[in-house]
């Protein structure tokens, strides 16, 4: 039990640093441009957070379980296309959303099949899947996308108190639910176990392949719901949407303390990672940097996040080693 409390202490300290970093970033851009904290700007940050947040929930859980899905952006986009196509065919809204969710589940199952049955590394097979979905979506929509209209748009365009967008609320609810699942349920603990030590997990009666399947399907479903919300927000299911979704989600997760080695991290840090990421990217626009600079910044931020993770891990190792030496002396 003592070990666990030490772990939470580290996580808490990490989230504190992260919160300070996010505050500094926000303050910096506010000083550079007062419009950065205007109602519109805050809304657009929250909107951006809603998509990358949904994807980050799924990706965090995959990373904790030691896997990755680089097709998550494409799955979100394709989920949106499925939903829009179903709506265009005259289906009721709930049916269209369920169709998208079903697609997400199937996409997750396909990934899990490759990883579990054929032993292919998840990063490379999901790159292939990403091309498949992207090409199909362009082909099926004639590269133009599918427009949506009517009551469905309320899912994306309404806002609580006129400021907090509905997709953001949905994302926040997902974050809270999954924080609970990860911390307090058997399946949540099983995900940490297979990510931390697969062989040990198996010995304690966890079936790693089953858990892997669950986290992939879970990721596909969450991504598809994210895609549905994006479609409602944008009024169109665009095959070019969410192209950098996987990278954003990975960056947010890793910034938030989810370890790439698996077995560590949680949802609380993930939220602050998201805030930091999206505030930073929106801030670049606020200071009038060219649009394409965002691409560079996203990649650079991912590199920085991973470097910070490395230095944190090394610091921890050094502390443990120092403590061990102390003990040896005694």
């Amino acid at each position: 039990m003592k070990k666990q409390s030490a772990l939470t202490a580290i996580l808490k300290a990490k989230s504190l640093t992260l919160t300070v970093a996010a505050a500094v970033v926000i303050l910096f851009f506010y000083i550079m441009n007062r419009e950065f904290l205007s109602g519109n700007s805050i809304r657009s940050i929250m909107n951006a957070m809603s998509l990358s947040g949904m994807l980050a929930v799924g990706i965090s859980i995959l990373l904790i379980g030691g896997e990755i899905d680089l097709a998550t952006g494409a799955e979100a986009m394709f989920g949106g296309v499925v939903c829009a196509a179903a709506l265009a065919a005259g289906m009721p809204i709930p049916v269209a959303i369920i169709a998208a969710i079903l697609f997400g589940a199937v996409a997750g199952l396909i990934n899990a099949f490759f990883v579990n049955v054929l032993n292919i590394m998840s990063f490379i097979v999901t790159i292939g899947m990403s091309s498949i979905y992207t090409g199909l979506a362009y082909y099926l929509t004639n590269a133009k996308g599918i427009n949506v209209s009517g009551a469905f748009l309320k899912l994306g365009t309404t806002a609580l108190f006129g400021i907090i967008p509905t997709p953001f609320i949905v994302m926040a609810v997902f974050l809270v639910i999954y924080a609970f699942i990860l911390r307090y349920t058997d399946i949540g603990r099983a995900v940490y176990m297979i990510g931390g030590n697969r062989a040990a997990a198996r010995l304690t009666g966890v079936n790693p392949k089953r858990v892997t399947t669950i986290v992939f399907v879970n990721n596909g479903v969450i991504a598809a719901i994210g895609g549905v919300l994006l479609t409602a927000r944008m009024h169109v299911a665009n095959p070019g949407a969410a192209a950098s979704g996987a990278l954003d989600a990975i960056a947010a997760s890793v910034l938030g303390g989810v370890s790439f080695a698996g077995g560590a991290g949680g949802m609380g840090g993930c939220f602050i990672g998201l805030l930091l990421l999206n505030a930073f990217i929106n801030g670049l626009m606020a200071v009038n940097l060219p649009t394409y600079f965002q691409l560079v910044a996203q990649g650079a931020l991912l590199i920085i996040a991973l470097s910070v993770e490395y230095f944190n891990a090394r610091g921890r190792q050094k502390r443990v080693a120092a403590e061990a030496r102390e003990l040896m002396k005694k």
Binding site: L247, L295, A297, G299
Partner: peptide, 13 residues
């Protein structure tokens, strides 16, 4: 893979 994926994003930008 993740180092070079980030580099892909940076270099494309």
């Amino acid at each position: 893979f993740i180092a070079t994926l980030a580099m892909a994003q940076v270099t494309e930008g």
